[in-house]
Simulated scan of single mutants.
Amino acid sequence: MISKKRQSKIILTIASTIIALIWLSPFYLMIVNAFKSKFEIFSNVLSLPSEWKFDNFVQAFIDLDFLNALTNSFIVTFLSVLIIIVFSSMAAYALARNKSRLSGVFFLVFVSAMLIPFQSVMIPLISIFGRMELLNTSGLIFMYLGFGSSLSIFLYHGAVKGIPVSLDEAAMIDGASRWRIFWTIIFPMLKPITVTVMILNVIWIWNDYLLPSLVLSQKNATIPLRMFFFFGQYTKQWHLALAGLTLAIIPVIVLYFFAQKHIIEGVAEGAIK
Rank of each mutant, 00 (worst) to 15 (best):
S16I: 12
T17P: 08
T17Y: 11
A20W: 10
L21F: 14
W23V: 15
L24T: 11
S25C: 13
S25W: 13
S25N: 11
S25G: 06
F27K: 05
Y28C: 05
L29W: 01
L29M: 13
M30C: 12
M30H: 04
M30N: 08
M30G: 06
M30A: 11
I31Q: 10
V32L: 12
N33G: 07
N33Y: 06
N33M: 06
A34M: 11
A34L: 09
A34S: 15
F35I: 08
F35R: 05
K36F: 08
K36R: 12
K36W: 11
S37D: 13
S37C: 08
S37A: 10
K38V: 08
E40A: 14
E40H: 10
I41C: 10
F42L: 15
F42V: 12
S43N: 15
S43C: 08
S43V: 14
N44Y: 10
N44P: 09
V45G: 07
V45I: 15
L46G: 07
L48C: 10
P49V: 07
P49R: 08
S50L: 09
S50A: 11
E51I: 11
E51K: 13
E51H: 14
W52Y: 15
K53M: 14
F54M: 14
D55S: 15
N56H: 09
F57V: 10
F57L: 08
F57I: 12
V58I: 14
Q59P: 05
Q59N: 11
F61Y: 15
F61L: 15
F61I: 09
I62S: 14
I62W: 07
I62K: 14
D63K: 15
D63H: 12
L64Q: 13
D65T: 09
N68S: 14
A69C: 08
L70Y: 13
T71R: 11
N72P: 08
N72F: 06
N72R: 06
S73C: 07
S73T: 14
I75R: 01
F78I: 14
F78H: 05
S80E: 05
S80V: 03
S80Y: 04
V81C: 04
L82V: 13
L82K: 04
I83L: 13
I83H: 04
I84Q: 02
F87Y: 05
S88L: 03
S88F: 00
S89P: 06
M90K: 01
A91P: 00
A92M: 03
A92F: 03
Y93D: 05
L95K: 01
A96S: 12
R97A: 00
N98I: 00
N98V: 02
K99W: 03
R101G: 03
L102E: 05
S103G: 00
S103E: 05
G104T: 01
G104R: 05
V109Q: 01
V109N: 05
S112K: 02
S112H: 03
A113Q: 06
A113V: 01
A113W: 00
M114A: 03
I116R: 00
F118V: 06
S120F: 10
S120Y: 05
V121R: 00
M122F: 13
M122W: 07
I123N: 03
I123A: 04
I123Q: 01
P124F: 01
L125M: 12
L125P: 02
I126A: 05
I126W: 00
S127R: 13
S127L: 09
I128P: 00
I128N: 03
F129V: 00
G130T: 01
M132A: 11
